[in-house]
Computed example of a mutant assay.
Amino acid sequence: MPVFRLIAAALVLAVPAGPQPPVERPGPVPVIYDSDMDFDDASTLAYLCEEHKLGRVDLRAVTVANNGFGRPDRTLRHARSVLTQCGLPGVPVAAGAAGEGVHPAPPELVATIETVLSGALDDGALPPYESSVSAVDLIERTVERSKRRVTILATGPLTNVAAALARHGVAGRLGGIEIMGGALAVPGNLYGSALPGFDNSQEFNMWMDPVSARSVLRSARPGSVRLVPLDATAAVPITQDFVARLAADRQAPGARLVHAIVTQPDLKALIDLGIMYWWDALAAVSMVHEGIAEYRPARIDVVREGVQSGRTVVVADGYRVEAARGADGAAFEERFLDSLNGRR
């Protein structure tokens, strides 16, 4: 056989058939942040911006589930405001369709969140921000174009994530899915007009779209899901002591934005009642820094119907996750404050 044919045959044999997984290279982990742009989602986005500038994460995209606590016509504007004010205006944003999901967020809380974020971000007079792509398309495109496995941090209803995992090849190319959601051995946190008809065994994110939550657990690559439920977030209440520390230590845009959010009058009143927690921020900080939350293997499922619709249950034949059963509240506050201020 001529030499050039031998070389060609060797090259053909050396090239694997079909789509290949991303090549792992040194550097910060690529992250897609999917949320419903609540007050703590906006605070978490500010945190991720500072971690991006510190080189600990590579914030590739921000997507919003428009069936959560954010007002659908304002969520992308608020996300864009946080990114711009933190110095990352080029990060792409996109939203899912409004009205998807199962149980709508209480309208009284949606109105409160809008008042808080418009006041803190000073963007209430700005027009809605429009994206040229959907949230699901942006997730798929970001995963496909990355040379490294992408991690999704999800801190709202899992509607966008479930739809993205249904796209061919997305689940297998993800490095992990970090979820704030669920309540395993503690009561739920339903509130206000969400309570009638349910037994409050549910955490809000899972309750708003239990069908998508179960779909994510079923579709994700085995071993790739980590869950931060209310069992762990109980260790990180928002206290006025921490707000005072933040007021005295605002060296970077992230810290200044979070301080502006937690000092809005409507939110301050809820903090004073002792019912507000750093739910989403704990998931983000424990994603970036080891030792903040204590994870243990668990098999869980999500109830989809009845008075417990949205409840996360531990069952022998459930889907395998790593679940945070507790957290170090003091370590969280120190790391959160340092990172918000851009300190290594």
Rank of each mutant, 00 (worst) to 15 (best):
V228H: 12
G181S: 06
N200P: 08
N200D: 14
M208L: 13
F204N: 07
L190M: 07
V243W: 01
I238G: 10
L184H: 01
D241K: 03
S193R: 14
S193P: 08
D249L: 03
L227Q: 03
M206W: 01
N205A: 14
V243D: 07
S224E: 13
M208T: 13
D241M: 08
A183M: 09
A185M: 06
S193K: 13
E203C: 04
A185S: 09
V225H: 11
L184Q: 01
A194W: 00
G188Q: 06
S215H: 06
L246S: 09
T233I: 12
R214N: 06
S219V: 00
P237M: 09
V211A: 00
A183H: 06
P237Q: 08
A235S: 14
G181Q: 05
P196A: 13
A244F: 06
A248T: 05
L246C: 08
I238E: 14
D199Y: 05
S224M: 10
D241F: 09
G223Q: 10
R245M: 09
R245N: 10
A232F: 11
P196N: 06
G182T: 07
Q202R: 07
N200F: 09
D241A: 15
N200A: 12
D209L: 00
D199G: 03
Q202E: 12
V186G: 03
A244D: 15
G197V: 12
L246I: 09
R214M: 03
M208R: 10
A234F: 07
P210D: 01
A235L: 05
V211G: 00
L246Q: 06
S219F: 01
G197M: 11
I238V: 15
N200W: 06
P210N: 02
L230G: 15
M206S: 04
P210S: 06
W207I: 00
Y191R: 02
S224T: 15
T239I: 07
A213R: 00
T233D: 04
D231I: 04
Q240Y: 01
S201L: 13
E203T: 02
A183Q: 07
P210K: 02
G188L: 04
S193I: 03
V243N: 04
D249K: 11
P237T: 12
G223P: 06
L227G: 02
Q240H: 14
R221I: 03
D241W: 05
M208W: 06
D249G: 01
L195S: 01
Q240M: 12
A247Y: 05
G192E: 13
D209H: 00
P222W: 05
V225S: 13
F242M: 11
R214D: 07
D241C: 05
V225G: 13
N205W: 00
S215Y: 01
P210Y: 01
A247S: 14
R218I: 03
P222Y: 05
S212I: 00
Q202S: 12
E203W: 11
L230F: 03
V225P: 15
V186A: 13
Q240N: 13
R226L: 11
